[in-house]
C-alpha cells in the first residue's frame, strides 16, 4: 500500500458516499444516471467475487464490502425508493453499447483465460467506461448539481491517483498490470473535460453548466 493508492481509495469511498448522501438527503436522484450506477454495481460484483475466497487484509475486505453495499443501496434508492425523481428521459445512454464490447474484449484480452480472471478483466474494462452515461446525461441536461460535480471530481480523482500508484509500484515494487493501467488511463481521460469545467467553474463557486 502507498499513499497514492490510499488517498485514491479514500477519494473513491468519499465519492460513492457523497452520492448516496445526496440522494438520501435531497430525497431525489435528479441529475444522477441510474445506468452508470448499475454498471458500477456490476463492476464491484464482478471484481470482488474473491471477497470470500482469498483474504488480502482487513482493509481490502472491508472496502470491498462497503463498495458493494453502497452501490446496491444507491441503485435501490434510484430505482425503487426515489424512483419518481429518476430522470429517465435524460438517462438514455444505451448500456448494451458498452457492456457487450467490453464483455467481448475481456474474452480476447486478459491475463489468464479463467472465469475469475475474465470477470476481473471485464470489471476493469467496464469501470473505465461506466461513467459515460452520467457524463452523457450532464451533456444533455447542460448542467449538474454542485454536489453531483463533487461526486464526479472525487470519482475521477480516484483513478487518476491510481495511475500515480502504478507508476510508484512500477519503480519501487516492479509491479505493473498493463490491463489495469491502460483501462485506468482511458477512464481518467474521459474525465478530462469535466475536470476542466470543475476547476474553472465549480471551484469558483459557479454552477457546473456546459456551454449550450
Amino acid at each position: 500500500m502507498n499513499i497514492f493508492r490510499l488517498v485514491g481509495d479514500l477519494s473513491h469511498l468519499l465519492a460513492i458516499l457523497l452520492l448516496l448522501w445526496k440522494i438520501w438527503k435531497t430525497r431525489s436522484c435528479a441529475g444522477v444516471s441510474g445506468k452508470s450506477q448499475i454498471m458500477f454495481g456490476l463492476v464491484y460484483i464482478t471484481r470482488y467475487l474473491d471477497l470470500f475466497t482469498n483474504f488480502i487484509s482487513i482493509y481490502n475486505t472491508t472496502m470491498k464490502a462497503i463498495f458493494i453495499a453502497v452501490a446496491i443501496a444507491t441503485i435501490y434508492l434510484i430505482y425503487f425508493k426515489f424512483k419518481a425523481t429518476y430522470d429517465s428521459n435524460h438517462d438514455t445512454f444505451r448500456m448494451e453499447f458498452l457492456i457487450v464490447p467490453v464483455g467481448g474484449l475481456a474474452f480476447l484480452v486478459n491475463h489468464d483465460f479463467t472465469a475469475l480472471e475474465i470477470l476481473w478483466t471485464f470489471s476493469i474494462y467496464l469501470e473505465s467506461v461506466a461513467i459515460l452515461p452520467q457524463l452523457f446525461m450532464i451533456s444533455k441536461t447542460g448542467e449538474a448539481e454542485t454536489i453531483t460535480s463533487h461526486y464526479l471530481f472525487a470519482l475521477g480523482s480516484y483513478r487518476a491517483l491510481y495511475i500515480v500508484n502504478w507508476v510508484y509500484r512500477y519503480y519501487f515494487e516492479g509491479f505493473f498490470d498493463l490491463i489495469a493501467i491502460v483501462a485506468g488511463c482511458v477512464q481518467t481521460i474521459l474525465y478530462c473535460d469535466f475536470f476542466y469545467l470543475y476547476v474553472t467553474k465549480v471551484m469558483h463557486g459557479k454552477k457546473l453548466s456546459l456551454p449550450a
Partner: peptide, 10 residues
Amino acid sequence: LGFHDIKDEL
C-alpha cells in the same frame, strides 16, 4: 519486472 497475479488492489 512482472505483474503480480494476486489482486491486492481494489
